[in-house]
């Protein structure tokens, strides 16, 4: 198949960018989307054009490093699928495909499709953990956790930190990411001791990074490759409100 590409090119954080058009013939529909970009890059290099920089690593949908806007949607048109798991058979012959980086002021573009998502790390640093030093842990089976609780904690913990939720949100809010971690930890008995402090710190860090407000459009859930539920956001709000009322 033959496709036409419009790709965001931006040499560095300091320069401005623009959309550039490329054409690819002989695209195999069994190719993954990123393999298509590999082929494009080989052809660009043959012509002496700087290859398109994009983030990717595991290429099996779990590391969360890949992630671009494809035809105006995070990770492209297939629901609950990361960019690396998207295959060219999803597109028709002759298709025009727009590729842009995830955009948010908290995710500055580094080069082409590469962005800086370290804001997510700083949110986790502010409190997204259970404070247990190596060696302090008690015998694992002393804490019983029912299957539904463990499973629902897992649902929240499944986040891969790709940033599609922020990219999809009209306000570039990081509420889904932040709440998934808060919810994962507060659902488990081990995580409850620090629940109050954690939610206050993480929300405050989320705000400091310049993410917008959550206005509950639920676009994040629709864009999330891991199907993280917006009810995590409700849980974060609940914990936050509780912490506010209870704190001294």
């Amino acid at each position: 198949m033959r496709i036409r590409l419009k790709i965001w090119r931006q040499e560095s954080n300091e320069t401005s960018g623009r959309m550039e058009s490329y054409e690819l013939k002989d695209v195999n529909e069994e190719m993954s989307f990123l393999e298509m970009l590999d082929v494009l890059n080989e052809q660009l290099m043959e012509k002496g054009i700087r290859p398109v920089e994009f983030d990717h690593d595991c290429r099996e949908g779990i590391c969360g490093q890949c992630g671009v806007m494809i035809n105006g949607e995070p990770h492209g048109p297939l629901q609950h699928t990361t960019t690396c798991q998207l295959h060219m058979r999803t597109f028709r012959d002759g298709a025009e495909i727009y590729i842009e980086p995830f955009r948010a002021d908290a995710f500055p573009v580094k080069c082409d499709l590469k962005i800086d998502r370290s804001a997510f790390d700083r949110i986790i640093q502010s409190g997204g953990f259970i404070s247990v030093d190596t060696g302090q842990a008690p015998e694992a089976n002393t804490t019983r956790i029912s299957v539904p609780v463990a499973e629902s904690a897992f649902d929240s913990a499944a986040c891969i930190g790709c940033g599609a939720c922020v990219a999809a949100c009209k306000n570039a809010s990081a509420a889904l990411f932040t709440s998934a971690k808060i919810t994962h930890l507060v659902k488990l008995p081990q995580g409850q001791t620090e629940a109050q402090e954690r939610v206050l710190k993480m929300v405050s860090q989320m705000d400091a990074e310049g993410f917008g407000h959550c206005t509950n459009t639920e676009a994040c859930e629709a864009a999330c490759p891991q199907e993280i539920s917006v009810l995590n956001i409700a849980r974060m709000n609940w914990e936050y409100n509780k912490a506010h009322i209870m704190r001294k």
Partner: peptide
């Protein structure tokens, strides 16, 4: 919220992901 994304998407189909009235 307007300040949280100053550079807009050039091609935006995020409307597929949420209800129009919520936005």
């Amino acid at each position: 919220n307007a300040r949280s994304r100053k550079v807009k998407y050039k091609y935006d189909k995020r409307g597929n992901l949420s209800k129009w009235y919520s936005r």
